Simulated assay, not measured.
Amino acid sequence: MFQTSSFRITAEMLLLVAEIDEFKGAWRALGTLAPERLSALRRMATVESIGSSTRIEGSRLSDREVERLLSNLDIQSFDSRDEQEVAGYADVMETVFAAWAEIAITENHIRQLHRDLLRYSDKDERHRGDYKTTSNSVAAFDADGRKVGIVFETASPFETPQLMAELLTWFNQASNPAVSQARRDELHPLIAIGIFVVVFLAIHPFQDGNGRLSRVLTTLLLLRAGYAYVPYSSLETVIEQSKEGYYLALRQTQAGLRTDAPDWEPWLRFFLKALHRQMCRLREKVERERLLLAKLPDLALQILDHARDHGRVTIADAVTITGASRNTLKMHFKMLREQGYLTLHGQGRGAWYGLP
């Protein structure tokens, strides 16, 4: 299927892995923020992850639109495909966050996650949770929507079941220290996860939803490997911000997967850099939260909490939640704006404040 025996980790990769693992070990101490502050970080990261992952695949919903949709998920009915994709991604992410320890990396569980990912998608009803039955090679299209060529040839429907079985067997053995040490091919968990993702996307086992599912699986695998901080910082947003590099790295590695010496370095370098950026973004957020707790008065913290929870806050909202006078609150809003914690939108009665 694919060869990892010739794989060698570079000095750059080794440094990235070491810094990520250092943060992983320190997270217990870094994560001592008040529960409501951690909850706010997780809510923000979840919205970012859902918005970014669906936009990578063509959705046009902004994070704010995603947040509004998530606040009304109980309606169970959605007007557009974009909304259907967001709702399905939200459901699956909640499942992963709640039950990652019980979700073993098996074909059945991956099929179930795919089924739930597409549960609201009318177009995908016939193939939810089933491997593909027709070719889904990645194609290039011109401005008029006409196919002009194949960018990447994925596995055929006939090959897919066997290749998925081989991938899962390999990953579960590589993730089992006793087995990998006995075979002398032990890989660091982050390297094994990176290889799993690039091979999964090369197979492209489902008719649709493979990209979104690969990012769900990345989060699941990281949680199962002990990277408990991942729900609090969006890896999907890091990937969206470097989407061209993401696709280039995938193609560079996938082009040689069926040879005797695949070039893992382009993808693994991108993957580890993305994980490192995810870690740095969270570290910066935690430090900002600590500074907030140390420096800001209680009224200002209440205003910021409301802005994080609802995406926006007005002076009228602040009067309701704090009971303070408008004049007192105006001084706090002015301070938060000047220090860069809030930005003003609109004027007069319609004015509201959001996070930068």
Rank of each mutant, 00 (worst) to 15 (best):
V238F: 03
E284A: 08
D208T: 13
V313A: 08
V151A: 13
W352T: 04
E287A: 11
L14F: 14
T343P: 01
L299N: 12
F196P: 07
H188G: 02
L268S: 08
A174Q: 14
G145K: 06
I315L: 15
N172Y: 05
E125S: 13
Q3I: 07
E83L: 01
I239C: 07
I195P: 04
K295I: 06
A225F: 05
L250F: 14
A143P: 00
F270T: 04
R28Y: 04
K273C: 01
D309L: 14
L275S: 03
G348H: 00
R281M: 04
Q207I: 13
L304K: 10
F7Y: 10
G350C: 00
R42Y: 00
S233F: 03
L73F: 02
L223Y: 07
I195C: 07
K334L: 07
K273M: 08
A178H: 05
I203S: 02
H306Y: 14
G354M: 02
N172L: 10
M335K: 15
Q278E: 14
E265V: 11
R64C: 02
E107V: 10
T322D: 04
R126E: 15
M335P: 00
L118P: 02
L69H: 05
R28T: 09
T54W: 09
N72T: 13
Q252F: 00
E36I: 13
R60A: 15
L355H: 03
W27D: 01
L30Y: 12
Y232D: 05
A11T: 13
F271C: 01
S80Y: 06
R326D: 11
V86I: 15
A101Q: 12
S175E: 09
E240R: 15
T218E: 10
E338K: 15
R126C: 00
Y246F: 06
L33A: 04
H306N: 13
E236G: 06
Q339Y: 03
A318W: 03
Y232N: 00
E265Q: 09
S325F: 04
G31F: 02
E85M: 14
E65Q: 15
F141V: 07
L296D: 03
T95D: 12
Q302K: 15
P297D: 15
E159K: 04
D263M: 04
I150S: 06
P161L: 10
P231W: 03
L113K: 09
Q162S: 13
I105S: 14
L221K: 06
A192Y: 01
L257M: 01
A192F: 02
I75L: 15
F206Y: 15
L222F: 08
T46Q: 12
V197G: 00
I56F: 04
P297V: 12
T10A: 04
H345I: 13
S234C: 03
E265N: 11
A26C: 03
R290P: 00
R224K: 13
D317K: 13
R81E: 15
W352C: 11
T46S: 09
K273T: 13
D260N: 09
T32V: 07
L33Y: 05
R183Y: 10
H114L: 05
A307W: 06
S233Y: 03
A351V: 04
R281N: 11
Q76S: 05
Q84G: 10
L168P: 12
V96A: 08
L355W: 03
L167A: 12
L220G: 09
Q84F: 04
E94A: 12
V66G: 08
